[in-house]
């Protein structure tokens, strides 16, 4: 974050609103479909700017505890994948299941918080 104004989130939101209020109505059906997709993409980017950094830190902390080793998030995920592949860790492990749920739920809160299974899981938790 540079602290510059308007912020990244404000700029992305400005473009998203432009797509929704001006572009979609004034182009042909095929292009309007893609303009709607584009506006949804900008909403995802906005959510990632808001939620992404904290979720990434939390994911890395859980991975460090779970694997009892350190590294960046990508390296830790790679290590977890190797251990799963070699069957050194399995889905009987409640700590692991909890980590996977939290990670995937965090990702969906950015990618698609309207997804049916996400809403159902939020309700259940």
């Amino acid at each position: 974050m540079t602290g510059e104004k308007p912020s990244s989130r404000e700029l992305v939101t400005a473009v998203k609103e432009f797509m929704e209020t001006k572009v979609i109505q004034s182009v042909d059906k095929h292009t309007a479909f893609h303009a709607r997709v584009a506006a949804n993409v900008l909403a995802t980017v906005d959510r990632e700017l808001e939620l992404g950094p904290e979720l990434a830190i939390a994911e890395k902390e859980r991975l460090t505890t779970l694997l009892k080793t350190d590294g960046n998030r990508s390296a830790l995920n790679k290590e977890l994948c190797l251990r799963i592949r070699d069957k050194k860790i399995d889905l009987e492990n409640p700590e692991l299941i909890e980590h996977l749920y939290q990670t995937v739920m965090g990702r969906l809160s950015i990618d698609n918080p309207r997804y049916s299974a996400y809403l159902k899981a939020l309700e259940a938790r």
């Binding site: 993409v41 995802t44 299941i97 996977l100 749920y101 995937v104 739920m105 990702r107 969906l108 990618d111 698609n112 997804y115 299974a117 996400y118 899981a121």
Partner: peptide, 12 residues
Amino acid sequence: RRVSETELDLLQ
């Protein structure tokens, strides 16, 4: 960005 949808479905 729809990959995460299938990850949740697989966990369920």
